[in-house]
């Protein structure tokens, strides 16, 4: 079955990102397809490679990047929410004249239409948030 996942909260403030990660892993293990994971609200903070948690803490950003690489998973950070919160890729860096970018491996920044499309294309939408 084809799933879309929406993550509304940042990785270290709320359990939502961990719940989403565990759900996605279990779904993949059960042979399901993840059409897209869409990061919205503070969820966009899942997509910054500058995240540096202590050694004994889980690195949630890397966990997403690994999933993306292993399963060619589409991880999309909402552009409007990202701009508000300072999540930038190369394209956004150029467009907005920023002095750097911070998007993590495996993530891409795109519009809200990607969430709507995920809702249309997938058989199930599962939302994790506050």
């Amino acid at each position: 079955m084809k799933f879309a996942i929406q993550v509304n909260e940042g990785p270290y403030n709320h359990e939502a990102s961990v719940s989403a990660l565990n759900f996605v892993r279990a779904a993949v293990d059960a042979g399901h397809e993840i059409f897209r994971v869409f990061f919205y609200h503070d969820g966009v903070n899942n997509g910054t490679r500058y995240t540096t948690p202590p050694q004994d803490d889980i690195n949630i950003v890397n966990a997403w990047s690994e999933l993306a690489e292993k399963h060619s998973m589409d991880l999309v950070v909402c552009v409007a929410a990202a701009q508000r919160r300072g999540i930038v890729d190369e394209g956004e860096q150029e467009r907005n004249g920023k002095d750097g970018n911070n998007i993590a491996a495996g993530f891409r920044i795109s519009g809200l239409g990607q969430l709507i499309e995920a809702g249309i294309q997938s058989e199930r939408l599962v939302v994790f948030g506050d």
Binding site: H41, A81, L112, G113, E117
Partner: peptide, 19 residues
């Protein structure tokens, strides 16, 4: 919190998809 506003943004963008 920002949820109400960012939710409304989704509704507006979603309207273009004619669901």
């Amino acid at each position: 919190t920002i949820y109400a506003w960012e939710s409304l943004e989704v509704v507006l963008i979603g309207a273009a998809f004619e669901q």
